[in-house]
Design a protein around this nucleic acid. Structure first.
Lengths: 341, 341
DNA sequence: ACCTGCGACTCAAAGGTTTTCATCGAGGAG
DNA sequence: CTCCTCGATGAAAACCTTTGAGTCGCAGGT
């Protein structure tokens, strides 16, 4: 059996060494039931001895499966990317996909150019499916992706009709209720809200939770709410605006930790003590932020790791063509108490 | 010409429509010179009409090229990942690789398990090359990767012998000199340093720059330096330690913006005014941090985007088998003045 | 008139795997 | 003892592209 040193072993080599045919060896690798115990063992031994690794390209060619999944972030404002939230999602995705042994192909979509490229790529059959993070209103990418014959799982609710879409969302509204109720239970009377950008449904859901916990209608809510755009600077400004609008405020529910960090700075500058004068609750429970503000931030935890895990699991089911019972999943949120409220 | 609607067109289809053979069509796609203008046009028209996209798997099978590159982050402390620096690198990688039309396969390795997996994957021929971020001393992953017959470009200097390795580094030492000289030029007399973890060469280089700018030897440096571990909290603590050790300090060069943010907090708590009492210079020029500290942070800019671009360009050359003249590249750093110094 | 050289092109093999279909052998039913 | 059934296995087709070898026609040299 002469084999060049530098050529990787093929299934043929494995089969030869195990004394079976390529077909049988293949069956062993794919855990087909129709194979005798002896053959199974022989093949496994050969695989081990040769350090055999299936050739992905060859396999992909015949199965019409690439073994790769795209993870797509559509975010018009590339700056937003510095939000540690994204790092966390990416990390979770990398881990979850590696666990099921599929390649993660990361795609960042900012411009229309990027959209076109993503379209080409996803339509080109280079991946078996996609995980899509596209929270913004009227995101072109969503309509593009919808038309593709490609299994897709969304993170949160994309804007527009949700018919036939698969998604894993956090219970934003429930979390907001939790936060607001907590502030109420502290005896706070004048509770205000720094919302996220209202072109994202997660921000809207959080706002709705806030409203329903306080029994506010749209008009009432408008008086005690400011949009902070999910950025630190936005949180800073929104808080300042609220202080001007509602001087007597004694509590604020901020729709993200990053904004809450900004809001805390504003409060401090305004001479307000937290939590004595103003109680603050954030959203995300981003440890690297929440634990390092002063005072440490009480926040609503949404478990991004869990969300991504669910998304991956769901997509794998789709890929295995299992009939999935629930197309939409909602993950619970919990309140994590620290010192700010 | 009956073609099922749902099957994607193959090169065969293109060739047929163009009235040429598969081989000629292939040559057109691969920009081979030996093809007549008429054939070229006919094939291009057919490609367009059919919306043809080459089958990556089939191509990979015959060319033994995958069209994918791994981007590997080796970081024992997964928490560190929340550092926006990583997000920036990942974003830059995604963009640069997309620009040259290669898939980016992201791999995060934290544990020995991850290392084994990475080893298997990289050895398995699933990618054509790799970009490796592994800054820590004695990182097992580096030795693993070194042994692989795989083109690799490193970010910064990995620990150990650099023989035959390709890397793109920032001028950490030069940047540190810049920072320290700047503090000197401000008339500061008692300049101290918060360093990064000394198991990373970037941290050591920055420390060396600091030392050489002040003409300090090891012993002298030890008296005015503290390790802040490249974390915000570490920066906080290191600053406190320095205040205790060198009460008369009037300037500090901090080896990362994240640590500088922590240091600023400590200074504030200690009642020091920045920059009046203590001038502060950071490193990284991380806008989302540097522009939002109070006061905004003067910092040494290292252009990560540029670094990653160079890494990608270098790797592509390696893949094209061009003989590369310089194996190591050093990118300049510049000082960005804001208000803290 | 014949060969040579050359450019444009076609043929067909190769690349490594999965999967269908056929084959083979053993064991049970009659 | 023969026929069937059924489980394990093997042969070969199929997946789609690249590429080296070979064909063909034509211009130019002898």
């Amino acid at each position: 059996m002469l084999v060049s040193i530098h050529t990787r072993p093929t299934l043929e080599d494995v089969a030869a060494r195990a004394g079976v045919s390529r077909a049988t060896a293949s069956r062993v690798l794919n855990a087909s039931p129709r194979v005798s115990p002896e053959a199974l063992e022989a093949v496994n031994a050969a695989v081990l001895a040769l350090g055999y690794q299936p050739n992905r390209a060859a396999r992909a060619l015949v199965t019409r499966r690439t073994g790769a999944v795209a993870v797509v972030f559509s975010e018009p404002e590339p700056k937003i990317f510095d939000d540690p939230h994204f790092a966390r999602l990416i990390r979770a995705g990398a881990r979850a996909l590696a666990d099921v042994d599929v390649q993660m192909v990361l795609m960042l979509v900012h411009s229309p150019d990027d959209q076109a490229r993503a379209h080409r790529f996803l339509a080109g059959g280079h991946v078996d499916g996609a995980l899509v993070f596209a929270p913004h209103r009227n995101d072109e990418l969503v309509s593009i992706v919808k038309k593709l014959p490609l299994p897709v799982v969304y993170a949160g609710k994309p804007w527009g009709s949700l018919r036939g879409m698969h998604l894993v969302d956090n219970d934003n509204e429930g979390g907001a209720v939790l936060a607001t109720e907590h502030l109420k239970s502290l005896g706070r009377k004048k509770i205000v809200h720094v919302s996220g950008p209202l072109d994202e449904l997660s921000a809207i859901d959080r706002l709705n939770g806030f409203k329903s916990a306080l029994g506010l209608d749209d008009k009432g809510a408008a008086k005690v709410t400011e949009d902070g755009g999910f950025t630190r600077e936005g949180g800073r400004k929104a808080m300042a605006a609220l202080l001007a609008k509602v001087p007597s405020l004694d509590a604020v529910f901020v729709a993200s930790d990053l904004m809450a960090a900004g809001a805390l700075e504003t409060l401090q500058e305004a001479g307000k003590r937290v939590p004595q004068d103003v109680a603050v609750v954030g959203f995300d429970d981003h440890v690297t932020i929440a634990e390092h503000t002063s005072p440490p931030l009480t926040s609503v935890r949404q478990d991004s790791d869990e969300q991504v895990k669910h998304m991956v699991a769901h997509l794998m089911k789709l890929l295995r063509d299992e009939t999935v019972k629930t197309k939409k999943q909602m993950l619970p949120t919990v309140l994590v108490r620290r010192e700010s409220a």
